[in-house]
């Protein structure tokens, strides 16, 4: 009798050990950081390796901007198994990226065009100033020639064709300069206005609905019996 009881006691000590044999599951998930998973619809974890009892386990894996991937893994006792998985980007995130790219491209263009126009106006003004200076220098030389020259024929040519031509060059350069300055001023005004306008544009926000869904998949009990988890995204960066 005693021997039977002793055998039963020894067997009862070993039985739970045999039933709880564990294996290790190594998570090789893309993205390599910041992913979470829920094992068997109950336990939410955030680690790269997990020890689990032998058998089939259900995993819900999620990372920010990615979709939740549900999969089952058979854990073998006393062995390390690798779970290699790439989490695809969520449709919401892809749409957000598209909207953000459109927003940035549109903003960049709206801001760049007047700057380019202003730069063009400055270059135009600079060229006009150069031409004006050249024409003025030519007229100054003509005036000096008039004072020192004693050949009536040369003076006639100077007054009849050379000076009128240089006067016309000066007038043309002046008109061009006024145009360039006006263009620059309009470009500067447009730049100021469009920078102010675009700074008020609303930047697209990413609402990670997959996170909300993932947070709702596990209920973690706390010291007072449990907590409710909810996801809230607050955009802190400036547009």
């Amino acid at each position: 009798m005693f021997r039977s009881l002793a055998s039963l006691f020894i067997a009862s000590c070993f039985l739970p050990v045999c039933a709880q044999e564990t294996g290790t599951l190594r998570m090789l998930i893309d993205p390599g950081h910041d992913f979470s998973f829920i094992v068997d619809h109950k336990h939410r974890m955030q680690q790269r390796e997990v020890k689990l009892s032998e058998g089939l386990h259900h995993f819900s894996i999620w990372a920010p901007e990615r979709v939740i991937v549900d999969t089952t893994v058979f854990v073998i006792a006393d062995r390390t198994t690798d779970l290699l998985l790439r989490l695809p980007f969520s449709a919401d995130h892809l749409e957000y990226r598209k909207q953000l790219a459109n927003y940035q491209t549109k903003k960049r263009w709206v801001r760049t065009v007047p700057i380019v126009a202003m730069a063009g106006g400055l270059v135009w003004s600079g060229i006009s100033i150069g031409q004006y200076g050249k024409a003025k220098k030519a007229l100054d030389k003509d005036r000096a020639d008039y004072e020192i020259n004693v050949d009536p024929g040369t003076l006639s040519t100077l007054k009849g064709s050379t000076i009128p031509a240089h006067n016309a060059d000066l007038k043309k350069a002046r008109t061009s300069l006024i145009g360039g300055l006006a263009f620059t001023a309009i470009g500067a005004g447009a730049t100021y206005y469009l920078f102010r306008l675009t700074s008020k544009w609303d930047r697209p926000l990413f609402d990670d609905r997959e996170k909300v869904r993932f947070d709702g998949m596990a209920w973690i009990p706390g010291a007072q019996g449990g907590i409710l988890m909810a996801g809230l995204t607050i955009e802190l960066s400036r547009p």
Partner: peptide
């Protein structure tokens, strides 16, 4: 701009 005019001969 107006000052430019005096440079005409």
């Amino acid at each position: 701009i107006l000052g430019c005019r005096k440079h005409d001969v």
